[in-house]
Design a protein around this nucleic acid. Structure first.
Length: 423
RNA sequence: GUGGGUGUAGCUCAGGUGGUUAGAGCGCCAGGUUGUGGCCCUGGAGGCCGUCGGUUCGAGUCCGAUCAUCCACCCCA
């Protein structure tokens, strides 16, 4: 593909014929966030590379092989944001947002960049709706955040998602679990796949998620993380579940879900669809109590989620959920003869100033073609105007849906009134 | 990064074993009503057959490479 006429790999244009879907999506997300008391935050598209090393974790795949990193002209190492939480945490610390009182509840809709191999539901630039909730270490915070996720997904019509919940423990109880896992898998070393052998050292949790038959079989008998939770984590996890049950949010506990970002502790969760292939996680998040202090801020707990907008749209399409199309043009002027051009341009200009969407032909087409065009742009009314109408001061307003024509004075206020009353 | 499928008109796709001007449907434009859309009919425009190289008298068709795309692994939204 030519460099000039092909978008970079893994990126997508949102075309004029589909942008209304994004607008609908964004409106729905903003409304849900507002209902739950979250305010929008905006942040730069790039950050100092160091931020992601410290927050996401320098052993994660995201950091190790997926970041768009470059040196700017001032010699700084800059990285295109691969995820939103780090930026929000940075901003939280930089501007001492806790100063306005906790909790701090923010949301964002922003693009993320990861150098990945594109596939269904996976792009190099994708957009996320994310929320972050700072200040509370109590399970109520989970109820708020997961409650918001459940709500906006339902409002979009996605009501058959699988909600998966897990607790991966805290800094106190996780090491014991890691050790137990490593000991268990060491015994079955010979039956593990090569990738899992590599995972043994760095992240034995991942072996639990391996799809390889032999590995999966071994994983079945592996120690279960939930058994290793310290009393505090256990209590916390129980309470999260109690809240969700009380709120009527169905979930399944999946001890195998492990998030790929290092900052997570305790609660992790995913909303998964089976409608769009292998990349079915449509919303994922969890708690990150140590994150803010890890990048140099106070020890403020937090949690949040990210939700991929492209994936949400894919699921909606797969499930046949129709997104309402915006209204077309209110009134189209089909003009005949050169002498009508000037007055028509003036009239649609005046109508537009009144907040009415008015259109005309600028392609020099005949009447029939103009009617066709009016039909295509979904015009509600058409005014046919030629020499006669111009001299008589009377026109017919044709309703495109019924075909009915109504006589009307050739007067902006009259036409505006009619269109407003009948749209 | 690894593996498999696919690249022909704006879109969805036909084009047995290589053979002259590369097709259809939809869409677009024009006409059939010289002042009225949707349905119907007629005509038209539109194609470096992804790209580069090779085999051959001859390549959309065969081979190689490359790029893109789709799917899976991996990872994540």
């Amino acid at each position: 593909m030519a460099l000039l006429t092909g978008a970079p790999r893994g990126t997508k244009d949102v075309l004029p014929s589909e942008s209304y879907q994004w607008q609908y999506m964004e409106e729905t997300l903003r409304k849900a966030a507002a209902d739950f008391g979250f305010s929008e935050i905006r942040f730069p598209t790039f950050e100092h590379t160091e931020l992601f090393l410290r927050s996401v974790g320098d052993t994660t795949d995201v950091v190790q092989k997926e970041m768009y990193t470059f040196e700017d002209k001032g010699g700084r190492s800059i990285t295109l944001r691969p995820e939103g939480t780090a930026s929000v945490a940075r901003s939280f610390v930089e501007h001492s947002l806790f100063g306005a009182g906790l909790p701090v509840k923010v949301y964002y809709i922003a693009p993320n960049f990861r150098y990945e191999k594109p596939q269904a539901g996976r792009l190099r630039e994708h957009h996320q709706f994310g929320v972050e909730y700072f200040g509370s270490e109590r399970p109520e915070a989970e109820a708020e955040v997961i409650g918001l996720a459940d709500t906006f997904l339902r409002r979009l019509g996605l009501n058959n998602l699988n909600v998966q919940l897990n607790s991966i423990g805290c800094h106190h109880c996780r090491p014991a679990f890691h050790k137990a896992l490593q000991e268990y898998f060491k015994e079955h070393e010979s039956e593990l796949c090569p990738t899992c052998l590599e995972r043994m050292e760095r992240n034995p949790l991942r072996i639990l998620d391996c799809k390889n038959e032999s590995c999966a079989k071994i994983a079945e008998g592996a120690p279960i993380g939930l058994h290793y939770l310290c009393p505090e984590c256990k209590e916390h996890f129980e309470m999260v579940q109690t809240y969700l049950r009380e709120m009527g949010i169905d979930f399944t506990i999946n001890p195998h879900i492990v998030r790929g970002l290092d900052y997570y502790v305790r609660t992790v969760f995913e909303f998964v669809s089976d409608a769009i292939g292998a990349q079915g996680t449509v919303c994922g998040g969890g708690r990150y109590d140590g994150l803010v202090s890890a990048i140099g801020g106070k020890d403020v707990p937090g949690l949040g989620f990210g939700s991929g907008i492209e994936r949400l749209l894919l699921v909606m399409e797969a499930q046949g959920i129709k997104i309402p199309k915006p209204n077309g043009c209110d009134v189209f002027f089909a003009a005949l003869g050169e002498e009508t051009s000037l007055p028509v341009e003036k009239m649609i200009f005046q109508l537009r100033q009144l907040g009415i969407s008015a259109e005309r032909d600028t392609m020099g087409r005949g009447l029939k073609a103009q009617m066709k065009y009016a039909d295509r742009i979904d015009a509600k009314y058409v005014v046919v105007i030629g020499e006669d109408e111009l001299t008589n001061g009377l026109v017919h307003l044709k309703c495109m849906e019924t075909g009915e024509q109504t006589e009307c004075k050739l007067d902006i206020q009259e036409i505006a009134q009619w269109v407003k009353a009948h749209h």
